[in-house]
Simulated scan of single mutants.
Amino acid sequence: MHLRIQSERPDSAVASALIAELDAVLKPHYPPQSRHGYSVEKLIQQKVAFFVAYLEEQAVGCGGVQLFGSEYAEIKRMYVRPEFRGRGVGKRLLAHLEAYALERGIPLLRLETGVFQTEAIGLYQSFGFQRIPPFGPYFEDPLSICMEKKL
């Protein structure tokens, strides 16, 4: 398996398609107030470093990381197409995002995800992420889980 992860603008055709797929997956499970994913425009506006994972030449997943000063970084819009799950794509992508934050001296990595994203939650826990109370813009929500990992 030849997996390549490359920096990509969120408004590229490939990245936009992956983000749209992620939104379509989440929409039936979460009301609007429980969906916190950035739009393509907000990813750009907030200067989120965004990456796309390619298996051979096919885009199979994406994810971003937003820096909040030197205090922490947050994982944004992480997604692996269902037919490519279980092949280590999510692990490689998460490791790439973690390395990006580490290279910039960030001591803490945080994220928010939905309670129905059981595969993602398992992946995050396997990487050492632990549940925390809501941070930043997040609030107590029975459909939301916040997690962090000290780097």
Rank of each mutant, 00 (worst) to 15 (best):
Q33D: 14
Q33T: 07
Q33W: 01
S34D: 08
H36T: 14
V40F: 07
K42T: 14
K42M: 12
L43I: 02
I44L: 11
Q45V: 06
Q46A: 11
Q46V: 00
V48H: 08
F51V: 03
F51K: 04
A53R: 04
Y54N: 02
Y54K: 03
L55H: 11
Q58K: 12
Q58V: 11
A59E: 02
C62G: 01
C62Q: 04
G63A: 04
G63Q: 06
G63S: 10
G64K: 03
G64R: 01
G64P: 14
V65C: 12
V65P: 10
Q66D: 07
Q66A: 12
L67I: 09
F68K: 13
F68G: 07
G69P: 14
S70F: 00
S70T: 14
E71T: 13
Y72F: 15
E74K: 02
I75K: 04
K76V: 06
Y79E: 05
Y79P: 07
V80R: 02
P82I: 03
P82W: 04
F84K: 02
F84Q: 08
G86E: 14
G86N: 14
V89A: 07
V89S: 09
R92W: 00
L94K: 08
H96R: 09
H96F: 11
H96D: 12
H96M: 06
L97P: 13
E98R: 10
E98K: 11
A99I: 00
A99V: 00
Y100R: 08
Y100I: 03
